[in-house]
């Protein structure tokens, strides 16, 4: 950050330039108190010793990470082998979140494209319609979804009623139910950034491509998609990251065996059965992974930018 040096005969812009570090203070304070401090606390807690009825003992320990990654037998005296339980939960979380993101992309992209190609006056209305369901609390929406997906819920009733299937199909308590739940929870986060970038897209580029004998599909792949990629990437991140740490959809729609990392963490802080350092350690692993993914994306974006600029 450049320091503010007083300049003689400064313009208004110079004045603000000098004041800039101070103007940014509230933002830094906010970030510090609400983002950095909690992460730091989590980091500290993940290296403390657990107290049996929840809470911690202020004594340094790596037991939480050890428990996450290694198996030392029931009594902790065997030679360590890799503990697959939590890695498997992690892996499942990534898979579920990735699938939900893909579903959101497949549904969200055409939706965003549709809205962005409506007459300008109607677009705000379409955006508003998309966001209406999200004025309802996430918990209530997820519970409603559970109701919809039940064996004798409306969806199965409808499918059986129309004769498409003979018996209700089990959707609830499957991986697919969780994916549906995550997809539905975060769909607007996919639609809105893509909509914003498609709206800025210069459609005469598509016309130029068609004029030069490109089919609709080739035009989409080679002209439109590269132009709106920043919006697509933003949408994918905004759906993937919260899906990865989500616990409502897996808990309510997935049942006990479709556990995700969010639920694992949540349980460590609930009631007396929890293990705070372990929960904090799992959060740190999750955070680290998300940060690595974001860095990879950012690097790629920067490289693509350099190519265009």
């Amino acid at each position: 950050m450049a320091g503010g040096t007083a300049s003689s005969g400064g313009t208004a812009a110079d004045t603000y330039k000098n004041a800039r570090p101070w103007l940014l203070l509230p933002a830094w304070a906010f970030l510090g108190v609400f983002v950095l401090a909690p992460v730091f606390m989590m980091l500290v807690y993940s290296f403390l010793t657990k107290e049996f009825r929840g809470g911690v003992i202020w004594e340094f320990s790596t037991a939480a990470y050890d428990q996450f990654f290694f198996n030392r037998g029931l009594f902790g005296d065997e030679p360590p082998t890799i503990e697959w339980t939590y890695i498997a939960i992690f892996w499942r979380s990534i898979w579920q979140a990735a699938t939900a993101t893909l579903m959101a992309l497949l549904i969200g992209f055409p939706t965003a494209y549709f809205i962005a190609t409506r007459p300008e006056k109607l677009r705000p209305m379409w955006v508003f319609l998309i966001t209406i369901p999200y004025w309802v609390n996430l918990l209530i929406r997820t519970v409603s979804m559970k109701f919809m997906l039940r064996d004798n819920g409306p969806i199965n009733d409808f499918l059986v009623g129309t004769g498409l299937i003979n018996e209700p199909i089990t959707i609830i308590n499957t991986n697919f139910a969780v994916q549906l739940g995550l997809f539905y929870s975060y769909l607007p986060f996919m639609v809105l950034p893509i909509y914003a970038s498609v709206e800025r897209y210069n459609f005469s580029l598509s016309e130029a491509a068609a004029d030069l004998y490109a089919s609709k599909w080739v035009t989409l792949r080679r002209i439109l998609l590269p132009a709106v990629k920043p919006g697509v990437v933003a949408g994918c991140i905004l759906v993937f990251v919260p899906s990865l740490g989500s616990f409502l959809a897996p808990d309510l729609l997935g049942g006990a065996k479709n556990f995700m990392i969010g639920s694992l963490i949540e349980e460590q802080f609930k009631g007396n059965a929890g293990n705070w350092p372990f929960g904090a350690a799992a959060s740190m692993v999750l955070l680290t992974m998300v940060l690595i993914l974001l860095l990879i994306f950012a690097r790629q974006q920067a490289r693509a930018q350099k190519g265009t600029g």
């Binding site: 210069n202 005469s204 580029l205 016309e207 130029a208 491509a209 068609a210 004029d211 030069l212 004998y213 490109a214 089919s215 002209i223 590269p226 132009a227 190519g307 265009t308």
Partner: peptide
């Protein structure tokens, strides 16, 4: 459709593919 017509256009705003 436009992509089947043996006709090409020079657009007023050029519409060059930026990437």
């Amino acid at each position: 459709p436009p992509n089947k017509r043996p006709v090409n256009t020079v657009f007023q705003n050029y519409a060059l593919f930026p990437q």
